[in-house]
Design a binder for these strands. Structure first.
Lengths: 224, 224
DNA sequence: TTTAGAATTTAGCCTTAGCTAAATTTTTAT
DNA sequence: ATAAAAATTTAGCTAAGGCTAAATTCTAAA
């Protein structure tokens, strides 16, 4: 038989999610210190947990060598991410939260266990492909749309793009973008790049704005 | 100052909710065995927890004498019940779950912490006063509508009523009612009562049904 | 009023999931 | 090649929240 359905704790789900994010595009070893930093706890606590995840066949772990998710671990991680992002859509689209207010709430909702709930929520929201930050929502099999998004800092003058997401999604940063009237879907034209401070001059709704290099490195565009 | 906002664990919230339900209409002492039975755990575990609730001024507890919620404890209990019932409305009204499928999911959702979320959810649902089982939803201050509902077993022949809720809300019972096409809002006429087995003969949509005494003792009507 | 039985609490143990401090392994610099 | 530094793991502690078994207190019947 395939594999019994297994009940994981909140902490286990959070570790799987974090490891998934740290592995990045190509699955690879993640070291315990990186996990500890991302989760704001201590490396020794991480060691403990990855050993347990390994016992449950959710990750492979070799002492001093780092950890990597198994197919099963990755399936669960994408399931949690799927729920997180669907709930974010719900909060913004239906309850009219701002995109910078939804993360903490979605962190809680993502752990609610009910396959039927997820299915119905997905349908209710119209099977969205992206969350309010522009991140793709995995489908029930863990597959997510591939976006060829590009950082504003990597775009060249005269290029046009639509804002499709952010790299850092801290509330501070999102609120800053809100004040500039930059949102998912905002049309942006790259006017010039200043090489001396890496700032980027853009045009939004006919208005010129200068963004710092740091901001440009955290804003994703889809070129048009 | 009034009282610092306090973070409670899921277990603490569940105890407060259970004690609230067991206290019933008039606040009164609840014994540990009753709590243990309701929560399906052991009396010794309950003793432990009620001592901690008492330390936090959420309940008053005297050894061997039972436990009772303080005003603060009651406020938190009604807050959890408010969330539970609002989420049940969401699941039935928006996601089209059946009334017998929502309890377990609402048990999880009721612990999500965000005052803003509750406010917005309440508005989104149109500030409902009752959940899908006919139970009143506490407002933000813990006050809930008083329903003068009556058990079908206490109604007399010739009386007419609308089904407004159930006492036992097990999935089995709710599914049984579904098969009889009895739901919240169903109009019921009491035709006769059989004293020898306490069964009740009723008329629904022109159809005669005989309900066992046990069913009649678990179905609430509002007389009309 | 005493006492058997029921209810309740206490004591001590377990698991999860965190921590610190110490030990160990790996990496890096000389 | 080796020693110092950095990374990682192990050992042992803590708190929450459950358990069982033993001790205690309450209650009800003789």
């Amino acid at each position: 038989m395939p594999q019994m359905k297994i009940m994981l704790t909140r902490a286990e789900e959070n570790y799987l999610k974090t490891i998934y994010h740290l592995e990045g595009d190509k699955p690879q070893e993640v070291n315990t210190t990186a996990i500890a930093e991302a989760m704001e706890n201590k490396p020794s606590s991480v060691t403990d947990m990855v050993q347990r995840l390994s016992d449950k066949n959710l990750a492979t772990y070799k002492r001093y060598r780092g950890v990597r998710l198994t197919a099963r671990g990755r399936k669960i991680a994408t399931g949690v991410i799927r729920k997180h992002r669907l709930w974010e859509v719900f909060l913004v689209e239906k309850l009219h939260f701002e995109w910078d207010q939804v993360h903490d709430i979605a962190e809680q909702l993502e752990h609610v266990q009910s396959d039927e709930l997820v299915r119905r929520l997905d349908d209710y929201l119209g099977n969205p492909e992206f969350d309010p930050h522009g991140d793709p929502i995995p489908n029930a099999d863990g597959i997510m749309a591939r976006t060829e998004k590009k950082l504003l800092s990597d775009a060249t003058p005269e290029q046009m793009g639509v804002c499709v997401g952010v790299k850092e999604s801290s509330a501070d940063f999102l609120q800053y973008l809100d004040r500039l009237k930059i949102n998912i879907g905002t049309k942006i034209k790259v006017v010039a790049k200043e090489s001396f401070d890496d700032s980027v001059l853009i045009e939004v709704d006919g208005v010129l704005l200068s963004l710092s290099g740091k901001v440009a490195e955290n804003l994703f565009l889809k070129l048009i």
